[in-house]
């Protein structure tokens, strides 16, 4: 089953009155349970592609299908609900809410969905155990390491059982050891729970973990590799 499908996807930016063609006709499909890396140098359009399929940005031309549903013409609020229910995000800079504890950060997406607080807490505790942060529930983000913060971000992305997890350079801010631990964890969740992961990277180590590589250059897919 296709989780994502893009058709002739274009995205233009205007920077200092100059139009930048970030994506130039991308046709891209991600199937359920895939562990796909979008690979390319800086400025190749990989983050832009990730943002568009994550409903974070609007496209210039083309179509995007999420679970075979065209999302190209959805309103701001409809896109917000789609992100809330179906997509998990992992950011390079973790982006945790500093005033909330580790546990509260993980629970946050479920509170947006109106899940019963007790049920949400139990699920968050279970996930924190899976990502190896048992006992750190009451700590604030600044009281834990970068790697631990990224584990919190992974737990936060997974708590709502998303159909798709998008990770924008998830290991870029981590040392190689912590980075590989995070990738091991993502891979484990993909294998055991069947969660679809799509992430962007230009890191050779990350590429080694990916089961499928999509190479992007100058806004176009130039090559694909399935391991």
């Amino acid at each position: 089953m296709e989780v994502i499908k893009t058709k002739d996807l274009y995205k233009d930016y205007v920077v200092n009155k100059i139009v930048v063609n970030a994506l130039r006709g991308v046709d891209f499909v991600v199937k359920k349970k895939e562990f796909t890396a979008i690979v390319g140098p800086s400025g190749s359009g990989k983050s832009t592609l990730l943002h568009l399929i994550g409903c974070l940005d609007t496209l210039t031309k083309g179509e995007i299908y999420l679970n075979e549903k065209n999302i190209s013409s959805l309103t701001k609020d409809q896109l917000a609900l789609l992100r809330r229910e179906k997509i998990g995000f992992i950011f390079q800079a973790y982006n945790l809410i500093p005033v909330l504890t580790v546990l509260e950060n993980v629970i946050f997406p479920l509170t947006l969905l109106g899940v019963n607080p007790k049920e949400a807490k139990n699920k968050a505790l279970e996930l924190l155990k899976i990502v190896g942060l048992e006992g750190m529930e009451k700590r604030k983000p600044k009281e834990i390491s970068g790697g631990q913060q990224q584990r919190v971000a992974i737990a936060r992305a997974l708590i709502k059982d998303p159909e798709l997890v998008l990770a924008d350079e998830p290991t870029a801010n981590l040392d190689s050891k912590t980075g590989s631990e995070i990738l091991d964890l993502m891979l484990k969740l993909n294998t055991e729970k069947g969660i679809t992961f799509v992430f962007s990277t230009h890191d050779q180590m990350v590429m080694e973990y990916a089961k499928r590589l999509v190479f992007l250059r100058d806004g176009k897919i130039i090559k694909e590799e399935i391991k």
């Binding site: 974070l56 809330r84 950011f91 982006n95 946050f108 997406p109 947006l112 936060r156």
Partner: peptide, 9 residues
């Protein structure tokens, strides 16, 4: 980030 998580305007 709040918006990315699906928080509405």
């Amino acid at each position: 980030m709040l918006k990315a998580l699906g928080t509405k305007d």
